[in-house]
Design a protein around this nucleic acid. Structure first.
Lengths: 197, 197, 197, 197
DNA sequence: ACCGACGGGACCGCCCGTTGTT
DNA sequence: AACAACGGGCGGTCCCGTCGGT
């Protein structure tokens, strides 16, 4: 990897927390300069615009969360375990997020949905991957007989993500982990009572 | 000061959708001028700063939602009906919100939690009121014997709001009402299976 | 005197300290409103512009100093006493000025000489009156034989005003009355050694 | 940073006359842009604020005068000659100032004394240097026996500066060099009659 | 590859003045 | 006679992006 490539990645890593915390409109190039220690010229060598950098910073932040998901999901055997692992990642997202600022998908979805179509498209794509993970877990559980018949994987995915993202929002708003814990607990009961055969 | 008061309220009403859609940092005074048809001088006669206006626009937007809640909640007799009514308001929030842009509490919570403490405090306060509504409904259900003993109203409130706000986020992100419908359905099942005696 | 006339004078009295301290360019209409307790409409009823008000406030401030001069000069008998009285008024101008902010002629001369010809003309006129007072005192001293022959009243006036205004400036700059005292002492010696026959 | 340093100095040199003539509050950034030929971005690259620029422009203007003083004072042998040289610099200050607008210390002292503490502190410091020059000249005169015993250098400094600055004010107000000439003449007599042994 | 200098313009806030109303 | 309401525009500051230099 060339030196330039490394710098480029460093910029992304250092600005992802910035954009995740203050948003795209709330972050200025001055903030970016401060976060990276580079001057404008140094940044524009690697990115054609602030928007391009923000997009990649979002992709990076989303990937950081995905990585945590992959890490936990692959080592789980049963579908139940995998769904629980998914929920536990969100517990971290609220309390000890991989990228400071909480859940990048939630943050960016809210900021972009009426104001930045390009960014919104990125969030949709990342969100699709998350939903697939849950859908796949559910399908596996259906295939192995772990889950009761008739379950709609899509519905389960919506329920999971909605509840968890909402819990993240509440815990971050109140700076109190209790809300995300209640969300996880809610889903845990849901798995046991509704999903399992 | 008859006319001024009216203008002031008109400014708030016309800018609430703006701030709710583009956020505090994403909305400029030029946007406000365009939305209101007034010049800066005319706006600054009623508000000392953009921040002051944004705070009041948020209060207004939150009050609009609260009004819908009050309207539906007061005419419901049972606790179950009131919880269902609460959920149904969120269905509207995602699809046909009283103030364009979705849920002002969700939007503002996400934008402010790392970037604007004053705004965040406002959201907290508004969110407290919402939680109280649910808690009160649950307490009523407990008192009448409608709900099973041992229910923690606080926990129910967290579960409701998390699930619904997350559903709003998903439906707005995908421009698809199915997600908020699934969230409401989720909570409907929850009421029937877990809350009722 | 009509009520309007009284308000008008009140405005002038209340804004003279403002303009004398912060200058014409440094004083805003907001400052004027605060100083008078009136709103813009109340002020523009009596003055067609900020400039017009500032001109009259200057005239008033200059008149305040002139009044002190008249008060002291009329009760003095000899030319020496009158010159000393003139100097003593400047001692007050630096330490306990009739209009807060020091000498209005000095302040306004400095601000206006390159920036505001109209104001500058007013200062010139007021300064002419001051110089005449000294010139007259000198002429009287010459007529009575109190002063030595050959004295140029114009020269004495320049020397007096220059020394005193410079002393005021220094004492106000350092917030230390010693400088104006030294200036007065300087002129006292000058009177005794150079002017008297 | 060869070029930038040069531009920075050019900005200071070009704005010093502006601030000296129209004052800090009377000079706008538009004036600065016009004087320098740069846009706001180009100016703010070198100075963090208008205030910072004004402070440095004052320092520059004060240094310009000081330079003239140094030039004349160093080549003079006797204390008398040095005091006369000091006075002659003020003659120029009124008629043909090194920085257009007259004496920067006088101008800035008057504008800042009630309105801008930071600027005022700068003036005080520069004025201290001037007073030291006179005090040193007097002390030298005392040491060589040129001046009569018992002279207080501090008093002489106050008298000189007060008289000269007041003379500058008058000459600039009237656009007539006669007043500063009279002030210099006054001090010349003072030197001969009062200071010399 | 990074920095420095600069443009052109948008930002929010405040300016001074006018108008309509009471 | 006083004020509230508003316009039109300038205030200083900071924005994002470009380009030349090293």
């Amino acid at each position: 990897m060339r030196k330039g490539e490394k710098t480029r990645e460093r910029i992304i890593e250092q600005t992802a927390p910035l954009f995740n915390q203050k948003g795209f409109f709330g972050s200025s190039l001055s903030d970016v300069m401060e976060a990276t220690g580079l001057k404008k010229g140094g940044i524009y060598n690697h990115f054609v615009s602030k928007e391009e950098l923000a997009l990649q910073a979002f992709d990076y932040a989303a990937a950081c969360v995905s990585e945590r998901l992959s890490l936990l999901l692959t080592e789980r055997q049963t579908a139940v375990e995998r769904l629980l692992a998914f929920a536990s990642v969100f517990r971290d997202l609220a309390i000890n997020p991989p990228v400071p600022g909480g859940c990048p998908l939630l943050n960016t979805a809210i900021e972009s949905d009426d104001a930045h179509p390009v960014l919104r498209e990125r969030v949709r794509h990342a969100m699709d991957r998350w939903r697939e993970r849950i859908q796949n877990a559910v399908r596996d559980g259906l295939a192995t007989g772990e889950f009761r018949k008739g379950l709609d994987p899509d519905v389960v995915a919506s329920r999971f993500i909605a509840t968890l993202e909402g819990g993240v929002m509440l815990s971050r708003l109140y700076r109190d982990p209790v809300h995300i814990h209640r969300a996880v607990e809610f889903l845990t009961e849901y798995i046991q009572k509704d999903l399992c055969a």
